[in-house]
Design a protein around this nucleic acid. Sequence first.
DNA 1: CCAAAAGTGTTTCCAATACACCCATGC
DNA 2: GCATGGGTGTATTGGAAACACTTTTGG
Lengths: 226, 226
Amino acid sequence: MRIKNSKSEKLIFGPAVAVDVLIFDVNNGKLNALLIRISKGPYKNKWALPGGLVRTDETLDEAAKRVLWEKAGIRGIYLEQLYSFGEVKRDVRGRIISISYFALVDSAKFQPRTTEYYSDIRWKEAKKLPPMAFDHGKIIAFGIERLRNKIEYTNIAYALLPKEFTLTEMQKIYEIILGKKLDKRNFRKKLKMLNILEPEKKMRHGLKSRPAELYRFRKRSLVFTK
Amino acid sequence: MRIKNSKSEKLIFGPAVAVDVLIFDVNNGKLNALLIRISKGPYKNKWALPGGLVRTDETLDEAAKRVLWEKAGIRGIYLEQLYSFGEVKRDVRGRIISISYFALVDSAKFQPRTTEYYSDIRWKEAKKLPPMAFDHGKIIAFGIERLRNKIEYTNIAYALLPKEFTLTEMQKIYEIILGKKLDKRNFRKKLKMLNILEPEKKMRHGLKSRPAELYRFRKRSLVFTK
DNA sequence: CCAAAAGTGTTTCCAATACACCCATGC
DNA sequence: GCATGGGTGTATTGGAAACACTTTTGG
């Protein structure tokens, strides 16, 4: 890539910059990533993260938000920067640096829809990925690790849950992300100690078992608990 | 910035990419960052991190290593990616995205020297910075936080210490980074449990007090201890 | 013999873990 | 009345924190 500084009009060389957004949800007992299928070019039929080039007049965070909205039809969800990938040959079509982002969404709140950009966009299980384009498999592995760590020392699970939920629903989220069963009594004791939830005065009825009390997060924004 | 794709020869617009390297040492009881003074332009007389544009034929890590060597005269030290900063106006001269890196060096091993790039380069206390150019103050704050966290769950202190050191020297590093006094017995008990050190069969003599046993890290590469 | 830093164990507290039974509802 | 998931308490263990004195050397 050649870069031309618009003020000095002096040509310099350098890489281009894209953002790629890794969107997770938890659904059907699985951790899933939202992927698009590439329909042409050297990566035809491979899967990839939604992404796009960063514009001159937007910040990295804004670019990520824009990609999330324009290319996946989602907004208003949890989003943080993940890592920047800059292998020279990561995209065979040219030198592009990827600033990756990491987003979480409540599975009930969002059904993937195609956009004008991508005709095939769907949830894929994050731990059983189809053939991926670029280094996007690596980005997803990185994101899984980030999530696994962060759920242990923050309230970030709020971003995967609806406003109201039962403790068992919350525990399932933890079990899926951590990849192991947790003890129900210890899980609840810990939550009580952390004091990040408050009970609604409502129950979830309608299932074929005892109704469960509903809770909500005191703060639906990132809080560190250690 | 305008970017021209060298294959398609189609002009597109986009930001330029730089790496900035935050180098820490601990010396004289302080955590210090290696800074350069800018001698001309709109940031004249402000201080900044050593940095440079990323070339088309090098990875981000390679660019960081090159900057470290060419601009600060250091190589072979601990280096990891920190965060990417992309505010639109972070550099008033043009749109430049900064991929920041984080490096640690043993203070005894390296004395700053000027290079052909920077005539004034020196250690400044990281918690009492002079007026900084760009958003480099923010990068340093981010790096301090990273170090403070990482020293608690890794053996990263090895990168700030020489091959051989006493337990008291190591404890001082922890105290400076964490910003608080630690209990000598508890510190040593914890180290014994973690089993990341091994005793040399040597003592440090020559001081005006009882000689101290020398230790070294079992592995001088990053190990997670939790 | 005095100053200076090295070295060393025990007790207390609290959070993490392990573990099993009764309860409320739908069918 | 039975299947299903909801809800609850106690005992054990292990790491974190608090805490003070003796040892070895140089001067």
